[in-house]
Design a protein around this nucleic acid. Structure first.
Lengths: 201, 201
DNA sequence: TCTTTGTTTAACAAAATTGCTAAATAAAAG
DNA sequence: CTTTTATTTAGCAATTTTGTTAAACAAAGA
């Protein structure tokens, strides 16, 4: 009896992830996914029970990737608030370079009729995270290095500055008229730039 | 002979815009659109030649809305750079509150196979805009009210801070655990907050 | 009223897509 | 080598969705 071989299953999942999360082709069908993975379409039904469950597998992976990033926000209690943010910015930008359409995929899937995919973050985790950040932020505000704002707004700023330029690459790239390489360089440069925008000193 | 009555055509277009740009249900079919507009599905084929052309009509409208907003960036040469940005922030946030999924729709449509919809902005317009902004930005940098950065990066910052929180509302709202009204209030508050983040003084 | 023209509807054909299954194939164990 | 099990393939049925058409309907003018 052959060992259960995860190669084909992995191949399908990775191809689906590439199509949805990297290339942003949200209209792709099982036909297209199978063809690009170089496998028979039936294998999608063999390994995943159907289209919906393949989507769900990609979704779960995407949420996992996303959540683990967000958790960075309150991890490593030793390092300073500012270092935490620096790490968050770096991880988030790298994530968004790797999977530019990850968040878009999540959003559109959540908006589908009858989607029950979004499992809310646990209350305790969220509260711990927010309180932890709030403490560090208040000090920065007291120092005058950050303008007065709620921790929620601060988080919005961080994530917006990191995620949006990868998300809206097609439009922005065309708007400023630069090639792929130059755009990627800009995204990398943003890691230090965003810190300068967030902290005024 | 009856006067050509644009009511039904408008109704279909507006319904499609609501479904795509306001509610973000990018998977909606002609069936669904017709049903929600309260008209026979055939009318979509009567007024628009088919699904693709309805999409294109929505797309054109969306681009128009989007472009006119971007043009604000370099309009009104009398008012100061900072006032221009303030106006841009206000208009952009209002736009994103009205049509939270406008940019998402544009992005996913552009990424569809065989999409030829994106007409590049005219070179002269872009260059005029960038140069105009660059002049104002350089002064702000010299004043020390903005950290040293390219005008492109500055634009990214402005648009990111304005657009992302509307775009990713489902996730962010759940993340910070507030209701609809509170979230909308936060978006409004961002108008002045973003100015404080962009300009350090 | 009758005709003409524009609008709407329902029904149908065509295409695309999904879900399923039975047969073919490959791989491992005995 | 044979058997058993896992994997893969091709094809088909069911469903969904799109695109088309002919007929019904409504409105306005002759």
């Amino acid at each position: 009896m052959p060992v259960i071989d995860a190669q084909t299953e992995q191949l399908i999942l990775e191809t689906a992830m590439r199509i949805f999360l990297v290339e942003g082709r949200l209209h792709a069908t099982t036909q297209v996914i199978a063809k690009e993975a170089g496998v028979n379409r039936g294998l999608i039904y063999y390994y995943f029970k159907g289209r919906d469950q393949l989507f769900e597998a990609v979704f779960k992976e995407a949420v996992l990737v996303n959540r683990s990033r967000i958790r960075e926000l309150f991890r490593s209690p030793k390092i300073s608030f500012r270092e935490k943010i620096r790490e968050l910015v770096e991880v988030t930008i790298d994530q968004n370079i790797k999977y530019p359409y990850l968040e878009m995929f999540l959003i559109t899937e959540i908006n589908r009729d009858g989607s029950t995919m979004l499992v809310p973050m646990e209350d305790e985790l969220r509260n711990e995270m927010l309180q932890n950040m709030n403490k560090g932020l208040k000090e920065e505000i007291k120092n005058g290095s950050v303008p007065k704002m709620s921790v929620e707004q601060f988080i919005f700023n961080v994530i917006s500055l990191c995620s949006y330029p990868a998300l809206n690459k097609p439009m922005l790239q065309q708007m400023i008229n630069v090639d792929e390489a130059a755009y990627m360089k800009m995204l990398q440069e943003r890691k230090s730039l965003i810190m300068k925008v967030l902290f005024k000193d």
